[in-house]
Design a protein around this nucleic acid. Structure first.
Lengths: 111, 111
DNA sequence: GTCAGTTCCTTGCATAACAATGAACTAAGG
DNA sequence: CCTTAGTTCATTGTTATGCAAGGAACTGAC
């Protein structure tokens, strides 16, 4: 099996999933949290397609809340499917981090 | 600045650069080492475009060695530019790993 | 009804990962 | 000399993420 190569690209998705594990958040809050956590350039152009993709796969519980100065805000939180996906990401990330850790600290990749 | 988003895709490249830091290796050996290090599905279809890309950017010192049963083997090892690129990757990887580490262990991303 | 502010969404481009395929070089056998 | 087999090198095309840019929709103020 090895590392799912898709993981190489899916890091941002994994982090967003993590943010929505226990809390309802809407887009503005997600962007804010991501930036505060070191993903300084994280943008809505990345977020919205991601949210729609995950929504289509049933990863969210969604709540629409009227807003005083805008269209209703769309709040997201993980569903059971979403938690499963987060779990898979977490496993994959640990595996990847270990592979790279091995390669970079010590034996230079010799078997 | 934050994390270079390109890093999300460039993990395999970083690992290949690491393998070639101090040693001349040709394609077959690179694939073998990558697989032995946990990237079990690593393939030549990924490797060759990567090597050509990096070669164009001057990241390699290259040695061609005749082979008894094939076209001459092409051995790669990092040039000064290659080592610089590896260094950048290493920094970026550490930053990314720390961001994710923060997010996943403990405070759930609250600021 | 128009305007400003905020939120939501779509479109299009760049690039890495990867499968699939083919070209090039050598040695061996007919 | 031609073909075949084995190995290495390279190209093409598809898919998916990241992201910039731009647009649509809803609300309150004037």
């Amino acid at each position: 099996m090895g590392i799912d190569a898709q993981l190489n690209k899916g890091v941002l998705e994994g982090c967003v999933l993590k943010l929505l594990e226990r809390e309802f958040l809407f887009s503005g809050e997600i962007v804010e949290r991501m930036r505060a956590n070191g993903f300084a350039d994280f943008s809505e152009g990345t977020l919205y397609p991601m949210l729609l993709r995950l929504e289509k796969e049933g990863c969210f519980e969604i709540k629409r809340v009227p807003s005083p100065n805008s269209p209703p805000k769309k709040y997201y939180k993980l569903s059971a499917a979403g938690r499963k996906r987060l779990e898979i990401f977490t496993r994959q990330w640990r595996a990847l981090a270990q592979c790279i850790g091995n390669l970079f600290s010590g034996e230079d990749g010799n078997a």
